[in-house]
């Protein structure tokens, strides 16, 4: 689906341009920090971010060339991973804290007020520490996020008997192009060749942690919804329901 002339450098610059703006909660964080208040703020923010995420995905070169059904599936599968990757990126310079938005950050202790959140919080802080340790660069970060989107349902769609046989090969070609872009970004650092491919492996291994925390987070959000601790509206509810539907 990519124009043949799109070099790794051009592809990265297009993906960088697709980056969503900073999203503000735009209201005072409700104090005291109760379970309901924190969850309300986080889901409110997630709902706003999701709207921008759709716009981001549409700007990833090649994405809108997929059928609508494919676009829906990809976003449904990866939305929480993409949100979490953004959260980790924003939090990288703030050890021990998670920067949900410029006007909403929580320490581990503050996150503890939500039942079952401390485990997820710790996993996110640990993954963010790893990002800090790796000194992830912005160009690498945007490539990883695009890879999360394109790889999200790779193991859910069959290579045989697909409704759209071209779809899978298009997806693989696009994923290869983003991989080339990531390799190009790593090479730009001037690291010795051996360290370049070990860095590539380390960066890709981050993604398995992100998938793991996302699955935990999805279960937690579902649980919060079932217990009526937080009312979910609009796009967030739609995306959560789609995920639960796929899992079952």
């Amino acid at each position: 689906p990519l124009p043949p002339a799109l070099t790794p450098e051009h592809l990265i610059s297009r993906i960088m341009e697709a980056e969503p703006p900073e999203i503000y909660l735009m209201k005072d964080m409700n104090r005291p920090l109760t379970e309901a208040n924190v969850m309300m703020s986080l889901t409110n923010l997630a709902d706003k971010e999701l709207v921008h995420m759709i716009s981001w995905a549409k700007k990833i070169p090649g994405f809108v060339e997929f059928g609508l059904l494919e676009q829906v599936h990809l976003l449904e599968c990866c939305w929480l991973e993409v949100l979490m990757m953004g959260l980790m990126w924003r939090s990288v310079d703030h050890p021990g804290k998670l920067i949900f938005s410029p006007d909403l950050s929580l320490s581990r202790e503050e996150g503890n007020c939500v039942q079952g959140f401390s485990e997820i919080f710790d996993m996110l802080i640990a993954a963010t520490s790893r990002v800090r340790e790796l000194k992830l660069q912005r160009e690498e970060y945007v490539c990883l996020k695009a890879m999360i989107l394109l790889n999200s349902n790779m193991c859910l769609i069959s290579s045989e008997g697909s409704e759209e046989p071209q779809s899978r090969s298009k997806l693989l070609r696009l994923l290869d192009a983003v991989t080339d872009a990531l390799v190009w970004a790593i090479a730009k650092s001037g690291l010795p060749y051996r360290q370049q491919y070990t860095r590539l492996a380390h960066l890709l291994m981050l993604l398995s942690h992100v998938r793991h925390v996302s699955n935990k987070g999805m279960d937690h959000l579902h649980c919060m919804k079932m217990k009526n601790i937080v009312p979910l509206y609009d796009l967030l509810l739609e995306m959560l329901d789609a995920h639960i539907m796929h899992s079952s």
Binding site: P20, I23, K48, V51, H52, I54, S55, K58, L68, L69, Q71, V72, L75, E76, D234, L235, E238, M239, D241, A242, M245
Partner: peptide, 24 residues
């Protein structure tokens, strides 16, 4: 059509060109 019903907002956002700023 049931799929479209279940993903009403997602479909709408994917298909239209409305700025997310207007929708957020």
């Amino acid at each position: 059509s049931s799929l479209k019903e279940k993903h009403k907002i997602l479909h709408q956002l994917l298909q239209n060109s409305t700025s997310p700023v207007d929708l957020a």
